[in-house]
Design a protein around this nucleic acid. Structure first.
Length: 450
DNA sequence: AAAACGTGGTT
DNA sequence: TAACCAAGTTT
């Protein structure tokens, strides 16, 4: 069979299969480009079944581009809570604002303009253009690369970025005249329902007859894909500080990086697993490190442990209970102001180095763990780098500038807290957006208190 | 090119 | 059970 015939046969049979019957999905009931767009962003690295309820809630609350553009960011994040990859939500809203301002609230029928929107890459632009506007653009995702690898028996490693352009060229050639949207969805539908990663259902596959991978007996070993690195373990110490009135001390994460702008319990990374696990050194490290941010707490009792796996990190979280907490600028001299975000990064580095010494000291039964000393050493050596990706003391915009106005002007006490910190009750807990790991811990806490 | 970036389902 | 993986994008 000629190559050209192989391709046209594949496209014709796959499209016919899709049109004979496909899944009834919420975003397939509309032709509104905005709905297509929202669904495609949610579907990035996320299963259809997970997305459906989020999509329905989201478009009910934000029915148009303008509704999304004008909404408070916290509201958008709350509707994304639990879906993961939260930069998608913030990029989507930023892009909605751009569409509202530059394109009069209408998603442009223009590949360059769509591709230029935040959060829209080669896959998503192709999906929007083909599904919403019928443009003959490829939409190559993991499903498509798997299907094409098998059908055309392609050995290229689909984990390599260089493979994508090749797949896009091939996918572009396959698009049947006037049927780009359906064909692209057919390719993905086949990958999701039939040509699955493991145990592909070749017996019910509409294009099994000329599938080169199957004919070569290689359907199980294709596509070639290098394995991802396992998540890096991190040991973290959190404090569950509770006031007499039942409110709990929480804080908002920085604007960038992991779980940006979500809420969490105050916590720090332990410099070593053994310090993390030590009933003496763990709470001490926690208290002294939080003191660098001006938060004075006394972790008194082991509350619970939690484990959470991200794509690239494996968190082991030990939660310590405490009674109340104070903001004490004297406790946190100007260490954080003087160090700034760069110092925060340096502090982490110093802490890691310091850990080795601390381990030896602990083994020798002497010397306490002292983050303050590590911080001051770091401060001496710290170069004025611009941003600290992950917080130790870098919280909120004031902290990002290196000096906290609140820290400088607010008197010490229970009502005054560093930027980004807040005392919340069960009702406020429900209104804020949390990453899963802390949502579970706090849900248990507030449920347990009745 | 490679790492960062979440969560839940499947085998 | 521990990998593996999902309608990827950004840096």
């Amino acid at each position: 069979m000629q190559e050209h015939e192989m391709k046209t046969t594949f496209s014709r049979e796959l499209l016919a299969w899709y049109r004979r019957g496909n899944r009834d999905l919420p975003w397939r009931r509309s032709q509104d480009p905005y709905y297509i767009w929202v669904s495609e962003i949610m579907l990035q690295q996320t299963r259809v079944d997970t997305v459906i309820p989020y999509f329905n809630r989201f478009v009910e609350r934000f029915p148009t581009v303008r509704d999304l553009a004008e909404a408070p960011e916290a509201d958008v994040l709350k509707h994304w809570e639990g879906l993961g990859y939260y930069s998608r939500a913030r990029n989507l809203q930023a892009a909605a604002q751009e569409v509202a301002e530059r394109y009069g609230g209408k998603i442009p029928d223009d590949i360059e303009a769509v591709r230029g929107l935040k959060g829209v890459g080669p896959y998503t632009s192709g999906a929007i253009l083909s599904i919403a506007f019928g443009r003959p653009e490829p939409a190559v995702d993991g499903n498509v690369m798997r299907v094409l690898s098998r059908y055309f028996c392609i050995d290229d490693d689909i984990a390599r970025p260089a493979t994508r352009p090749k797949m896009e060229s091939l996918a572009r050639e396959l698009i049947p005249e006037g049927a780009a949207g359906d064909f692209n969805q057919a390719l993905m539908e086949l990958g999701a329902m039939v040509c699955t990663p493991r145990s592909p259902q070749c017996l019910i596959c509409p294009v099994t007859e000329h599938c080169a991978g199957r004919l070569a007996g290689r359907e199980e070993e294709l596509p070639v894909k290098t394995k991802a690195k396992p998540p890096k373990p991190q040991h973290r110490l959190a404090v569950l500080a509770e006031r007499a009135d039942g409110r709990v001390l929480v804080r908002q994460r920085p604007s960038r990086g992991l779980l940006a702008r979500l809420w969490e319990l105050p916590h720090v990374e332990a410099p070593s697993e053994s310090i993390w696990g030590s009933a003496e050194q763990g709470p001490r490290w926690l208290a002294e490190t939080l003191a660098l941010e001006g938060v004075s707490v006394s972790p008194a009792r082991h509350a619970c442990d939690a484990e959470h796996v991200f794509s690239h990190l494996h968190w082991y979280v030990r939660v310590w209970g405490a009674d109340g907490a104070m903001f004490d600028p004297e406790l946190a001299p100007d260490v954080s102001a003087a160090l700034g975000p760069a110092g925060a990064a340096a502090l982490r580095e110093a802490a890691a180095t310091y850990a080795a010494a601390a381990e030896l000291a602990a083994a020798a039964g002497s010397a306490a763990v002292r983050p303050r000393a590590a911080a001051e050493e770091a401060g001496m050596a710290a170069a004025p780098a611009r941003d600290a990706a992950e917080p130790v003391p870098a919280h909120g915009d004031a902290a990002a500038s290196g000096v906290s106005a609140a820290r400088a002007s607010t008197p010490a006490g229970e009502d005054a807290l560093p930027d980004g910190y807040r005392w919340i009750d069960g009702a406020e807990f429900e209104r804020l957006a949390w990453p899963n790991v802390f949502r579970k811990i706090l849900a248990d806490h507030f449920a347990g208190r009745g």
